[in-house]
Nucleic acid binder design. Structure first.
Lengths: 134, 134
DNA sequence: TATAATGATACTATTATTATATCATTTTAC
DNA sequence: GTAAAATGATATAATAATAGTATCATTATA
């Protein structure tokens, strides 16, 4: 199983790659050459990161993408939220039909505790810290 | 997303239900009446729990299932392992193609830390502790 | 004004999970 | 002995999430 989807994973790579090279502007084509993320997928991700405020974009010829903010202010949690929504490790159990005794379900609190831990990790990780290998 | 699959979830319910009623033997039909887990799915799960050593079974008329060991010795980790294999939250990234720099991937260590925490929770949780609401 | 970029979006493919269905085998009550 | 009631084994279908593709519209500039 995977805690992070590929969209999240690829996006982190993009952000790290950009952050490593200062405040340069990048086209999708350039990023493809460097990172080999499937091209149309990459483009969609870039657009989502733009909409989500992680990147800024310029349209038209000589357009491209750049980081919207400093690497130390971009949290892994932001990327996860953008592509996966709020982390909810309990999801399935309560989706369509209500769990018979949600309140007292002791499994729930275990999962919740793991979820909390994961979110804390994501909140405490920035693009900068990833670049520094922390 | 869900940390536990339905197989795992259902199985925990079955184990807790059994544990709550002493060392009784149960048929799949009885468990269905009590737990309303889809019947063929329930049967398959019971068979897997039997093979996996969580339950014992008796075949033939007046056959059925019972706990293979005391509730305090059955760990949530055992159930997860049986139905989901070793928890591997990193899975996707390294599946088909190798991550370009697995060793140095700082994301990996974050995920690993979350995985370790989750496993610790699972190891520390037993059917008995779930019954007691811990 | 042609070109080279992003924007928007519909579509397809793949995979994992969830669920069903069926027939074989075993045991026992009668 | 044998029918009935249980599990064993296993193939298949349905659903949903993820991953990836394709295409046309729009924008800006060389």
């Amino acid at each position: 199983m995977k805690l992070l989807t590929r969209e999240t994973d690829y996006s982190v790579r993009v952000l790290c790659h950009m952050a490593a090279k200062g405040n340069k502007q990048w086209t999708a084509a350039e990023l493809y050459l460097d990172l080999r993320i499937p091209r149309p997928f990459l483009r969609r991700i870039l657009q989502m990161m733009n909409k989500g405020g992680l990147l800024e974009s310029r349209k038209g010829r000589s357009g491209g993408f750049r980081l919207a903010s400093a690497p130390r202010t971009i949290k892994l949690a932001d990327v996860v939220r953008l592509f996966q929504g709020e982390l909810r490790l309990n999801e399935c159990l309560f989706k369509k039909r209500i769990c018979p005794d949600r309140k007292h379900c002791p499994l729930r609190s275990k999962i919740q505790s793991i979820e909390d831990y994961a979110v804390k990790q994501f909140e405490g990780t920035t693009i900068q810290s990833l670049l520094q290998g922390n």
